[in-house]
């Protein structure tokens, strides 16, 4: 596929002897939102974390197969993992701002990648605007980030990722710790962001997947059972398991 931005081919992942991902091949299209769905423990988070090499830190994780960002093999020995993580950002389930001020949280991301000092304030303002947070925080940028509401913290985490201009943003249940209003703000934000980024999001919320995603991947026990455009998965699933899952019969 020509518009594939990120892809996995024949991906297997083991934690020790236990195989958690089984022969997964998938490709995410540029400027689209792809939702990963499936019952708890099926390997959604594990799959997501292979894309920014978060498993590098677990000594018992072993990965086989190929993951490509455009034409680049992201597990290539010559590639710096920090560079990969700058190009493929991640937003976590629980908002995790650093115990610093709002401004410093944004600044930190830029500083570690040696952005020129004079550009930093404008970049931060832009990213906060892009993440719909600017109006709420512009007068209190020096406030500790942990004093923001959960939804604001999560938008700050998104802004902190966006400020680095990544190509891909991975999100692992970004709304599961938030109330409905914060959730809808973040959904709105995700749909806006796909103009500039390719987004892969794990969610347990079927309505959310339908509202925001273009493609949907259904996983079950470490396997990719079905991958199709959103409408087909929800209205016309080919696989019996998919049908039962999106119909709310298990999981």
């Amino acid at each position: 596929m020509s518009d594939s931005k990120l892809s996995a081919q024949g991906l297997n992942l083991f934690f020790g002897k236990k195989q958690v991902l089984k022969n997964i091949s998938i490709s995410f299209k540029k400027n689209q939102v792809t939702a990963l769905i499936g019952p708890s423990g099926c390997g959604k988070s594990t799959l997501l974390r292979t894309f920014n090499r978060m498993h590098d830190l677990s000594p018992d994780a072993r990965i086989e197969g190929l993951i490509k960002l455009d034409e680049l093999n992201i597990y290539d020995k010559k590639i710096q993992v920090t560079e990969i993580r700058k190009r493929i950002g991640m937003v976590f389930q629980k908002p995790n701002p650093l115990p610093k001020s709002i401004y410093e949280n944004m600044e930190y991301a830029l500083k570690i990648h040696n952005f020129p000092k004079q550009e930093i304030p404008a970049l931060i303002e832009n990213a906060l605007k892009e993440s719909y947070l600017w109006d709420e925080v512009k007068d209190e940028l020096n406030k500790p980030a942990v004093q923001l509401s959960g939804g604001q913290q999560q938008r700050l985490c998104i802004a902190r990722t966006v400020v680095l201009r990544p190509e891909i943003i991975l999100m692992d249940e970004p709304c599961s710790a938030l109330d409905p209003i914060s959730t809808s703000k973040i959904e709105e934000l995700i749909v806006r962001l796909k103009k500039d980024y390719t987004i892969v999001i794990v969610t347990h919320n079927m309505q959310q997947a339908q509202r925001i995603s273009d493609d949907v991947a259904f996983m079950y026990l470490g396997e990719l059972m079905e991958f199709d455009i959103c409408n087909n998965i929800f209205k016309n699933p080919k696989n019996e398991l998919t049908k039962n899952y999106v119909g709310g019969h298990f999981g």
Partner: peptide
């Protein structure tokens, strides 16, 4: 999750430990 916050932004392990 604290370590992942900075590692996910592309900080090195040393930066994560130090900061």
């Amino acid at each position: 999750s604290m370590r992942e916050a900075t590692l996910g932004l592309g900080a090195t392990q040393f930066e994560t430990i130090k900061d």
